[in-house]
Amino acid sequence: MHKVEIDAEIDLLEENKRLANENRKYLRENMIKAVNIMGAIGSGKTLLIEKTIDALKGEIKIGVILGDVICKADYTRVIKYDVKVEPINTGKECHLDAHLIHHCITSFDDVDLILIENVGNLVCPVDFDLGEDYRVVMVSVTEGDDVVEKHPEIFRLADVIIINKISLANAVEADVDKMESDAKKINPKALILKTDLKNNIGFEDWTKFIRKILEK
């Protein structure tokens, strides 16, 4: 029996980094901005995408990548807005990765902006760079007002933090000020928005952000 121990020293995340950089290169060469929208299940990610398309479709060409366990319901919602949508059924995988994005990104060539809806999860997506320009993290008051302090890493790396469904705060006894203050403590640089998307509260601040990033 010839037993050996080898020093492998293999970076297991290198492949994702490599593909994320390829995605990033493609986006830059085609002057497309990409926004990775992460957040809790039911926080309002799909509604954010629908409203963004509806509000800006006259001025910005938008494409959408939807990641979910089974994408059909979200796909049916978004395709009604007559934009290019690529659905990715992630099955038991709890996050999108650069490899999945790499498969479909080159099918977007005539858009200004790609909105990527990540799988509803505040843990796993944070470690997988997709090649995006901006990271958005959404939560809603219905997840409890300690949801931000319980998941510091995903909020630490966000460019925009959206606290949604604020009109329900009293009904679910959630302290929105605490959520905002937790987010500021973890990430003082992030843009923090408080919204109720169903009732159009705070949505203009989001469209202002989108217009601004497309000016760059």
Partner: peptide, 19 residues
């Protein structure tokens, strides 16, 4: 944030040349 496969301890096929 690293994830490195550092070492592998294995039994080689005795008919293979030394690596």
């Amino acid at each position: 944030k690293e994830m490195i496969l550092k070492k592998i301890e294995m039994e080689l096929d005795e008919n293979q040349d030394r690596i």
